[in-house]
């Protein structure tokens, strides 16, 4: 037993607080929008230049001039504002965004993040990820705990080129939740349903403390 993609997204959604401005990355982080508690007011930012991102459009509402950072068609809300990419990253770099949820290939026990490049294999680019991890107040990573072949992705040191150093505050995997504090390292604070600490240890290279409240 472990969490599936939607359960991971639902867990990440619990990090969103009333009044937050939030940027969601591509993949599982995008699903977080489906799990936001209706009792809180959250504004989603899309780094191509929009605050107040709405859901996907109905078929007859699709507008080529209205896309999110994943190039998906979306809709606007009554609160929406549009701006240039420079303004958008001024918001991000200037520390005005409260929380970002991103995917990852690797995270180190010090909070280093690698999520943009596999040398010699993948040539895509970092997009806005480096700006987000450098500027956003709190960075939450959502990812599978290990690769399909069982290789750990929570490591002592990242092997792939970094997106940022000591930037990750929380990691949510299919097995559980880890807090990372600068100078203190990584702590396992929650386990997914049916998962025990030894299951996690067997698939983790990074050192971590255990502080799971039952």
């Amino acid at each position: 037993m472990a969490w599936d993609r939607n359960q991971m997204a639902a867990r990440a959604a619990r990090e969103l607080k009333d009044g937050f401005y939030v940027n969601l990355g591509i993949g599982i982080p995008t699903l977080v929008a489906n799990h936001i508690d209706e009792s809180i007011d959250v504004t989603l930012q899309s780094e191509n230049g929009m605050l107040g991102m709405g859901p996907f459009p109905y078929d007859d509402e699709v507008d080529a001039d209205l896309i999110n950072a994943g190039k998906q068609t979306i809709t606007e809300l009554r609160r929406t504002s549009y701006f240039s990419s420079a303004e958008s990253f001024a918001m991000i770099r200037g520390g005005h965004i409260d929380l970002s949820v991103l995917g990852a290939m690797e995270v180190s026990e010090k909070g280093d993040l690698a999520n943009w490049m596999i040398p010699g294999k993948m040539v895509k680019g970092m997009g806005g990820a480096m700006d987000l991890v450098a500027g956003v107040k709190r960075v939450v990573v959502v990812m599978d705990h290990a690769s399909k072949s069982g290789a750990p992705k929570l490591l002592h040191e990242c092997s792939l080129p970094l997106t940022g150093r000591a930037v990750v505050d929380l990691v949510i995997t299919n097995l559980g939740v880890f807090e990372i504090e600068t100078g203190k390292g990584m702590t396992l604070v929650e386990l997914a349903s049916g998962v025990c600490v030894d299951d996690v240890k067997g698939l983790t290279q990074a050192d971590f403390d255990v502080a799971v409240s039952s």
Partner: peptide, 9 residues
Amino acid sequence: FNPQGTLAE
């Protein structure tokens, strides 16, 4: 490659 915000700025 430039980070997107760095490119815009």
